[in-house]
């Protein structure tokens, strides 16, 4: 039996761009280039390594996002994933994590899976909770925030470096895993990979295909409301001093003035 791996990847605005909110207080996707969330590259990488170790495996990448999110799927396919699923629907605009997890759960179930791999957090919303919620919805073990992951004989094991301890975890498949940026550098797509990705299948699904009611998702169906978003006032320009031999002392003077010493 082939090991069916599904990797959840998100298309996000470039963090080094000038990100801001649109008039409806959702993420403005117009002015900033989008890309495959860097933290999801680690998920794709671990999927590829797990597939390499398995006798027979198939990797499907899934995204929920606007039309441009295909770029994220292409990137994952060019890294080596086999096929892609794109959930795209105008009704999805403004969906929050509760809605997104519902859509992803349905898409993952429809695709069929033994192992779902997510990134540790998206680089835009950065909640870091979707993998746990997805496991809750799918009713399978949550094995999240792994810095090391291994799949062997229907069991997933991994190391989770938590707030106060490092834990060794184990669960049976099917399971939902998320991996951190400590799990190992993601590979660059090769030229061959990029060419091959163009021919790999990308299935498009909408809300109807997933039998999801429009009022469960989107801005109107959202479970949270953003009432206002304000740009943080630029920090008032600080004092910048060139060290002429007394820099440490000057800094101490400043800290004493601020009552830190």
């Amino acid at each position: 039996m082939s090991l069916r791996i599904v990797v959840c990847v998100k298309y996000v605005p470039d963090a080094t761009g000038d990100r801001h909110f649109a008039d409806d207080l959702t993420l403005d996707r117009e002015d900033v280039d989008g890309l495959l969330s860097e933290l999801d590259e680690y998920a794709v990488e671990q999927a590829l390594q797990i597939a390499d170790e398995a006798d027979d495996a198939e990797i499907t990448v899934v995204t929920v996002g606007p039309e441009d999110a295909k770029d994220a799927l292409r990137k994952a396919l060019s890294m080596g994933a086999d096929k892609a699923v794109h959930v795209e629907d105008d009704g999805l605009h403004g969906t929050d994590v509760i809605g997104t997890s519902l859509v992803l759960a349905k898409a993952v179930e429809k695709t069929g899976y033994d192992l779902v791999i997510c990134g540790m957090a998206s680089t835009d919303a950065a909640m870091g909770v979707l993998p746990a919620v997805l496991a809750e919805r799918l009713g399978v073990p949550q094995v999240t925030l792994l810095s090391e992951v291994k799949v062997e004989g229907g069991t997933v094991t991994g190391r989770r470096d938590g707030d106060s301890a490092s834990e060794q975890l184990q669960a049976s498949l099917p399971a939902v895993v998320s991996v951190t940026d400590q799990s190992g550098e993601a590979r660059y797509p090769s030229f061959k990979g990029i060419m091959a990705a163009k021919k790999k299948p990308v299935q498009s699904l909408d809300l109807e295909d997933l039998e999801i009611d429009a009022d469960e998702v989107g801005l109107a169906g959202a479970w949270t409301a953003v009432d206002s978003a304000a740009q943080r006032p630029a920090r008032t320009a600080g004092t910048i001093v060139k060290d002429e031999g007394e820099g440490g002392k000057q800094l101490a003077e400043f800290l004493a003035g601020q009552k830190f010493i």
Partner: peptide, 19 residues
């Protein structure tokens, strides 16, 4: 920054610590 020192940390940090 509220306060910044343009300088070599190997000079500035020990001096600050001592102070």
């Amino acid at each position: 920054v509220d306060y910044g020192i343009v300088g070599d940390l190997f000079q500035v940090v020990p001096q600050l610590t001592e102070e």
